[in-house]
Design a protein around this nucleic acid. Sequence first.
DNA 1: TTTTGTGAACTAGTTCACAGCT
DNA 2: AGCTGTGAACTAGTTCACAAAA
Lengths: 227, 227
Amino acid sequence: MTRENKLPPEERPRAIVEPVSELTTNRLSVYLRCLNALETSGVRTISSQALAEQFHLNAAQIRKDLAYFGEFGVRGIGYYVTELRRHLRQILGLDRGVRVAIMGAGNLGLALADYGGFRDDGFEIVALFDTTKDKIGRRSRGGVVIYDIREFRKIVKREAVQVAVIAVPAASAQHVVNIVVGAGVKAILNFSPGALKVPRGVKLKSLDLTVSLESLSFFLAQGESGE
Amino acid sequence: MTRENKLPPEERPRAIVEPVSELTTNRLSVYLRCLNALETSGVRTISSQALAEQFHLNAAQIRKDLAYFGEFGVRGIGYYVTELRRHLRQILGLDRGVRVAIMGAGNLGLALADYGGFRDDGFEIVALFDTTKDKIGRRSRGGVVIYDIREFRKIVKREAVQVAVIAVPAASAQHVVNIVVGAGVKAILNFSPGALKVPRGVKLKSLDLTVSLESLSFFLAQGESGE
DNA sequence: TTTTGTGAACTAGTTCACAGCT
DNA sequence: AGCTGTGAACTAGTTCACAAAA
């Protein structure tokens, strides 16, 4: 019973309308990280219960998340760490590496380019892009070349870029996104504040620092009067 | 039973158990940013409908979000931009400035320290902390002083730090969080990957770059076969 | 036994739709 | 007329609880 579509017997929507929520895929990443650690420390099997205790999650939720993609567990045993890890990497598309370009060679862009945390998981930062004459042709400390953004289309093809990271000032973010989309990139991670428009079929994910900080500020402001 | 018990029947915690979800507070930030822009361009009033069209949100949701905190609107008119903006800044605790310390003067920490986007909204980066001898005593390009993390407790008091940002390697993140919490800081923004433990009463918000990238990678991997 | 996979029940979050104010 | 504030209806997401498998 790998992937039976239940419910409307013949009124099935065209194609598979992706039933997996973003919350689920985010958790898959978290599980994968945990499995990496478990494998390193030589653990062979893990139950959903044990996995759930690592973070504050519910065991049934982990089982449901995994069940979207297959029956990976063994009743009475749990999940084989190595096997589940391999499956998750495949589901997340990490088995073949993911090639990433960073738009904007400012503080943030350069910091992200040299941040090593991704590499192990299968991401490779293949290029930086900027408009500033002085920066173009130089490299980040970690060795990532900074290209003229006018060459974006060309480099995307040559380097098979699949993901673009937006690390430019808010004022030029939409313009840069348009260039990125125009070159056929289908996945964008955005660090600039504010709403950006992308056409259907392009996935935009935003990490908004200001929103996060303000959420913390709200917590502090409420706590003050509340307690 | 990982989390909290089902609560004693009528021994429910005193006061109003905050009914405002994090999704709501995140949206308040978004509304605020929009109001800032509207005020700058001289717009006097805005309806929930018009606000909703800016991002892809529902007008009723905006009204509900705001209604948690008061009746700010005027029927037949909408919301007065300046007034609503002032209210939101107050609700989010931005009217008095928010003082922020950054843990870790690596690429990311330095980039965040010099990122200007916050300042306008009422955040001030007052200190960087690190353990590396060479870095201590120096400043970021923007002028934020790098202190020895052993001085954290002292500086927190002196500078009235309310929020700490974790920008250290994953391996030392929990240790640094413990120091931060030990010094009485109640709000933490975490950029390091992996789960961190904080005591109850401390708010931890994590922005996990790897999780976000993997979510995009998943989208790409699915799209390939799906369409 | 133990632990998965999963329908059913529950909870949280969103949208609808309309009474009521200006 | 126009638009808010809000109960009711709906949708999405989580947790429970148990039959079935090893």
